[in-house]
Computed example of a mutant assay.
Amino acid sequence: MAQNTERQPSAVVIEPLTVRISTAVQLTGISRSRLYELIQAGDLETVKVGRTTLIPFRSLKALVDS
């Protein structure tokens, strides 16, 4: 009996490019005020789109990984 050697495709995880402050609070468990402190200190990157402040997801991951 021949074995099935076909590989099942692995799940692809799609990460967002940016997240809002409220989402960053939920994802990290860091308080809103602490996130703003990290932004002021230059420890977190931000992107402004109009009046909205967005945080690049890679910047959040780097913060948590450090």
Rank of each mutant, 00 (worst) to 15 (best):
2 A>G: 14
4 N>L: 05
5 T>W: 13
5 T>A: 14
7 R>D: 15
11 A>R: 12
12 V>Q: 14
12 V>M: 11
13 V>Q: 13
13 V>N: 07
15 E>Q: 14
17 L>N: 13
19 V>S: 09
19 V>M: 10
19 V>F: 10
19 V>T: 05
19 V>C: 06
20 R>H: 08
20 R>V: 07
20 R>C: 10
20 R>N: 07
21 I>C: 01
25 V>A: 12
27 L>K: 05
27 L>R: 06
28 T>W: 09
28 T>F: 12
29 G>N: 13
30 I>N: 08
36 Y>M: 00
36 Y>R: 01
37 E>P: 08
37 E>T: 08
38 L>T: 07
40 Q>C: 11
40 Q>V: 12
43 D>Y: 03
43 D>T: 08
44 L>I: 06
45 E>S: 05
46 T>Q: 13
47 V>Y: 11
47 V>A: 05
47 V>K: 04
48 K>P: 00
50 G>W: 03
52 T>S: 14
53 T>R: 03
53 T>Y: 00
54 L>T: 02
55 I>C: 05
55 I>G: 02
55 I>F: 03
55 I>M: 02
55 I>K: 05
56 P>C: 05
56 P>G: 03
59 S>C: 00
60 L>A: 00
60 L>E: 02
61 K>A: 15
62 A>C: 01
63 L>Q: 08
64 V>A: 07
66 S>C: 12
